[in-house]
Design a protein around this nucleic acid. Structure first.
Length: 463
RNA sequence: GGCCCAUUCGUCUAUCGGUUAGGACGCAAGAUUCUCAUUCUUGAAAGAGGAGUUCGAUUCUCCUAUGGGCUACCA
């Protein structure tokens, strides 16, 4: 499910929960040629992962079952024929070839109501002869239609701009243009949240509701989420969808939180909202009219906030799968703790932990550091004492290590910084590491830390 | 092409005629820190353009420009 769809679902969910309504999942699979294998499974998976539980739907049932349009097929013909009898719709037998002759100089086609003028007898005759047919909406060409949208306000469109849309296709399936109206009525949908691409065709739908004498739902058209100023976020162009972000190590709560704020403002300066808080804060009046560019950098920041608030156990559980490539035995629980403020997505972990396995052959110039006034020379002189002191250290915790190193620095009349720099480089061989000298020693464990120090020392001596 | 919608820092946004145009991300600088990161402080950064209406327009109206959408037997 792509991010735009997820946000639409989220808003509908928030609105339903906030107002004591029902959140209903309906599968619109009337285009038999564009069916995508497992697409429905992906929808279930995303909704579940996102925590958007639906009250009714194909998988959970409900009073309006079935919730999959292809299973409701017989229904639509009945309603379409009803419209034919009331002359709000008509049979059309035009061939693709004839339709193509209607294309104008701008490359567009508008149906000329040719079949509207067929006599009843002619229609019966063609029907009986098995000529393929569709049912088209009969849209009046005079006047204008105005409707109210909860985001965009009053929108007015001249009826002559409207088309005689196909309602029922030749395979007997309804088009979206028809099925959405019939099903929204039958399922007692009160509020329609959908992308703003439907703004221009909404008058068509309202005419249908009126033809049936049905109540028109409230409309909440949503601005698009963009990849950049001119391109929509779209699955077709390989833009990330919800599951991709999960795979990239983003937390569902963070994605939902970020997406909720894309095009909606909670009228607070708060940035972090749990799903429940979103429910409480949600209000259609905060939805903006203009499209919003999706900013993964800000998503990363938000995700980092969520990561920081996880308990050590939770974070470690989420991080563990990313540790499989680490060959050196280290204290992984401690690693999780050290990485916590240093990653903004779980997928940052492999890179952040890469230093662990790449120790051999580092440049001895790393010991030269002006900031802490340390040098290779000093390292060569000091390391034996460090090794000796740490060999006899009772505990091997970060605190014990730090205390011992601090003490040693004082004894040898060294700045704390100097000694710590030397030890950290001696034990990791990296300019920057996710933790200081004592933490790196704790991470590696006594045996390994001391072994690395000896190795570093011998390289320093033979250099 | 026609129609519909939109337009505040780079990005997400606040402002519902009178503000030093606020916040967040990012960026820059500084402080803290056993490197890095975190955290904290500070800074740079915006009303598309032009007409009106008004004592006063980011805010209301119109025009232009730009961007998006629709114009399918796709949704």
């Amino acid at each position: 499910m792509h991010i735009g769809n997820l946000r639409t679902a989220l808003y509908a969910y928030l609105f339903a929960r906030k107002n004591g309504g029902q959140f209903i999942l309906r599968i619109e699979d009337t285009d038999r040629e564009r069916l995508v294998e497992d697409a429905v499974k992906a929808i279930y998976a995303t909704l579940k992962l996102a925590g958007l539980r639906h009250d009714e739907g194909p998988d959970v049932g409900g009073r309006c079952a079935p919730y999959t349009q292809s299973e409701r097929k017989p229904l639509y013909a009945k309603y379409a024929k009803e419209l034919v009898s009331s002359s709000h719709a008509y049979y059309c037998f035009c061939t693709k070839e004839r339709l193509d002759t209607l294309i104008d100089e701008t490359g567009n086609r508008r149906y000329d109501k040719h079949c509207l003028h067929l006599s009843k007898a002619e229609v019966q005759e063609k029907l009986a002869a098995g000529v393929p047919w569709v049912i088209r909406q009969n849209v009046p060409q005079e006047g204008a239609t105005t409707f109210f949208d909860m985001v965009y306000g009053d929108v007015s469109i001249e009826n002559k701009e409207l088309h005689d849309n196909v309602l029922l296709k030749s395979d007997g399936m309804p088009t979206y243009n028809f099925a959405n109206v019939v099903d929204d009525h039958l399922m007692e949908i009160t509020h329609v949240f959908r992308g703003m691409e439907y703004l221009s065709s909404t008058p068509n739908y309202n005419m249908l509701y009126e033809a049936f004498g049905w109540e028109i739902p409230r409309y909440v058209h949503l601005p698009h989420i963009m990849k950049d100023k001119q391109h929509k976020l779209s699955k077709r162009h390989g833009d990330a969808n919800f599951e991709d972000f999960i795979a990239k190590g983003f937390l569902p709560e963070a994605i939902l939180n970020y997406v909720a704020l894309l095009g909606w403002n909670p009228k607070t300066e708060a940035e972090k909202f749990s799903l429940q808080e979103l429910v409480e804060a949600f209000d259609v009046s905060g939805i903006s009219k203009s499209s919003a560019v999706f900013d993964e950098v800000k998503l990363r920041w938000l995700n980092a906030q969520y990561l920081k608030e996880l308990s050590p156990q939770q974070l470690h559980a989420l991080a563990s799968p990313y540790y499989s490539a680490i060959a050196t035995p280290v204290n992984l629980n401690l690693l999780s703790e050290l990485l916590r403020p240093r990653i903004s997505a779980l997928s940052d972990i492999p890179d952040a932990a890469k230093f662990i396995d790449s120790f051999e052959g580092y440049s001895l110039e790393l010991f030269e550091h002006a900031g802490s006034k340390s040098s290779a020379q000093l390292a060569r002189e000091t390391l034996p004492a460090v090794i000796a002191a740490l060999e006899s250290l009772a505990g091997w915790s970060n605190d014990a290590l730090f205390g011992a190193l601090e003490q040693l620095a004082a004894q040898r009349d060294l700045k704390k910084k100097q000694l710590l720099w030397i030890v950290r480089i001696a034990v990791t061989g990296h300019l920057s590491t996710p933790g200081g000298a004592s933490e790196m020693c704790a991470l590696l464990g006594k045996e390994q830390a001391l072994e690395r120090m000896r190795q570093s020392l011998s390289r320093l001596r033979s250099a």
